[in-house]
Simulated assay, not measured.
Amino acid sequence: MRDADIRSALHARLRSEHGSGVGTRYVDELGLCGTVRVDVAVVNGTLSGYELKSDRDTLRRLPTQIEYYSKVLDHATLVVGEEHYVRTNGMPNLPLSWGIIVASPRLSDVHLEEVRAAEMSERLDPFAIAQLLWRDEVLSELDERDAAGGMRSKPRRLLSDRLARLLELDELRSVVRERLKARATWRQPPPHE
């Protein structure tokens, strides 16, 4: 069972659960804080992420992924191969807020069994969330709030920090989700010199 098999089964499950309407966007390899990538993200009324670990994968990067996912994602779920799950006795080092789905091979497909539902992260970091936005998106949000003065030549990191300090967490989460859903492309434009 390969990552591609698990990803395909997960996409089918997510589309069944969330649909494919305008209010939901699916993103493969969503970058977080320039450090990690979420294998599959679902953007709708919340921002949920799924980290795939087939039995062929190592769990070596998981602690770093947990750290960043927990700062940015409302809900995080580990989709793990059956052997990893059994070998680690049910993933005891995974935060309790994280969901767990066990992937098992079944004849010609992959069976996904939810062992634990994801709960809302209690470690959300406004600055990390604001970093999901591209420079022009952050500037546009600051402009809408008359808070872009003196910021146009500043690096994106400072713009993100200003937006994170300006908005309450729930408003920031909403703004970021709407911007992510509205993107026409997922290739970040080159930075302005």
Score class of each variant (00 low, 15 high):
168 E>W: 05
4 A>N: 11
106 R>S: 15
184 A>N: 13
91 M>A: 10
82 E>S: 12
32 L>P: 03
66 I>D: 01
127 F>L: 00
45 G>P: 13
185 T>S: 06
188 Q>F: 07
49 G>D: 08
183 R>A: 04
25 R>D: 02
71 K>M: 05
20 S>R: 12
113 E>P: 10
5 D>F: 04
192 H>M: 13
158 L>E: 09
10 L>K: 07
115 V>E: 15
14 L>M: 11
38 V>Y: 00
77 T>K: 11
129 I>E: 09
20 S>M: 11
38 V>G: 02
178 E>P: 09
161 D>T: 15
191 P>K: 14
64 T>C: 06
160 S>V: 07
80 V>E: 03
170 D>S: 14
166 L>P: 01
122 E>H: 14
18 H>P: 11
31 G>M: 11
125 D>L: 06
100 I>A: 09
93 N>Y: 14
43 V>W: 08
161 D>K: 12
62 L>A: 01
40 V>L: 13
8 S>N: 08
157 R>K: 13
61 R>Q: 04
180 L>R: 01
124 L>Q: 09
124 L>F: 02
44 N>P: 14
51 E>L: 13
7 R>K: 14
51 E>M: 12
192 H>S: 13
39 D>M: 06
155 P>W: 15
93 N>V: 05
10 L>C: 00
66 I>V: 15
8 S>A: 06
